[in-house]
Design a protein around this nucleic acid. Structure first.
Length: 147
DNA sequence: AGTCTGACCTGAT
DNA sequence: GATCAGGCCAGAC
């Protein structure tokens, strides 16, 4: 699996080094968009990377969403990354939190039922960022709703 | 400069 | 129905 022979630095925040991007203000990387969307997530709600990626306009780059979350921990206003889960509603990134249980703790603290690292009634707690932006959601959302 | 990994998703086999 | 492969962007070695 992932061949990671190199040293891993926890402080590898993508957005942390904003020196590379010319002007994130005028040229807001999708990173910023993701953070904004995630911050817009109401309490007691959760969304998926795909939904955010879709809303950000990078459905095919949903992976980057998770990567962007990596820097979320360094964000001043802590981005509610715990409200972001994969399409399965499983706390995939929980392991990346300060504590593997922190994510579940936060979700439960918001009233979300989490069991076995998976959000129960995900279709209910699911929050569509597109709904806030009035943008057409993808089939991913439909599937979730259908489930 | 090239290579690879990364908290994913979708489509096709 | 489950599994495989492809794909996007950005950062680190």
């Amino acid at each position: 699996m992932k061949t990671y022979p190199k040293t891993k630095k926890p402080s590898s925040s993508p957005s942390g080094s904003k020196t590379k991007t010319k002007d994130e203000k005028e040229n807001p990387s999708f990173f910023d968009t993701v953070y904004k969307l995630v911050r817009k997530i109401p309490r007691g709600r959760a969304t998926t990377y795909g939904a955010i990626a879709e809303c950000a306009g990078i459905r095919l780059s949903a992976r980057m969403v998770g990567w962007a979350m990596n820097g979320a921990g360094n964000m001043k206003p802590p981005v509610p990354a715990h409200r972001v889960v994969n399409r399965n509603g499983m706390l995939s990134g929980k392991h990346h939190f300060e504590t593997p249980t922190l994510m579940q703790e936060l979700l439960e603290s918001e009233g979300i039922t989490v069991k076995d690292d998976t959000i129960q009634d995900f279709s209910k707690v699911f929050w569509d960022p597109a709904g806030n932006k009035k943008k057409p959601a993808t089939s991913a959302v439909k599937k979730i709703k259908k489930a």
